[in-house]
């Protein structure tokens, strides 16, 4: 198969490679660049484990071809860890740890990037906005309770107060019956 040359900035670093046109961005990141935090959990763009930022916007990297990311900038969870690669100073990762927003860790890199994207889009989040904003990211371990808290903390909110407001709210919960993989 003929290769196509791509140049993709990943976490601030320029990467180039010759890739098959069908190569998924998720595989490019994992195999070609060697960044393994980004996981792949489904075949249908439903689970969001592969969520990364593409020029600042959260996308599911299993549904983006590497060639589509040519000349664009990708941020993965590794990109939040600072120069040292082990910093937990980023407000989102710090909140995930403080609120126990992860268990097995598989959804975590995608969830962290989805939350990062969500806060960038809407800094004034409440619990319902977080829950609906994360509708495209599945977690099997946490029941989302602490992920939602982590997102609220990262957005500068008091999670106890927000949960209280949501619990007492009569507002319609507009979510669909289950995830239909509508994308981030």
């Amino acid at each position: 198969m003929t290769g196509v040359k791509v140049e993709i900035t990943v976490n601030g670093r320029t990467t180039t490679d010759e890739v098959e046109p069908r190569l998924l961005l998720a595989h490019y990141l994992r195999e070609n660049v060697g960044l393994k935090a980004t996981n792949i959990g489904c075949d249908t763009t439903s689970c969001g484990a592969c969520t990364v930022l593409l020029d600042g916007e959260s996308v599911k990297s299993c549904t983006v071809l590497a060639v589509q990311a040519d000349q664009l900038a990708v941020t993965t969870m590794e990109g939040l860890a600072g120069e040292s690669g082990d910093s937990l100073d980023h407000p989102v990762t710090a909140a995930f740890r403080a609120e126990h927003g992860l268990q097995c860790g598989f959804c975590t890199p995608g969830m962290v990037m989805a939350v990062t994207g969500l806060i960038a889009e809407n800094p004034d989040l409440d619990e319902r906005a977080v829950r609906e904003g994360l509708e495209g990211n599945l977690c099997r371990c946490t029941g989302y309770h602490n992920i939602v808290r982590a997102a609220l903390v990262a957005a500068g909110k008091d999670p106890d107060a927000e949960q209280e407001i949501e619990a007492l709210s009569d507002d319609a919960r507009t979510a669909p019956g289950f995830s239909v993989g509508s994308g981030s």
Binding site: S46, R131, L138, A175, S179
Partner: peptide
């Protein structure tokens, strides 16, 4: 046979828990 068909809940279908 896929997550598009199986009723795996997202955060939007669940409340916080007391």
């Amino acid at each position: 046979a896929t997550f598009a068909d199986y009723g795996f809940p997202s955060a939007a279908e669940l409340p916080s828990f007391d």
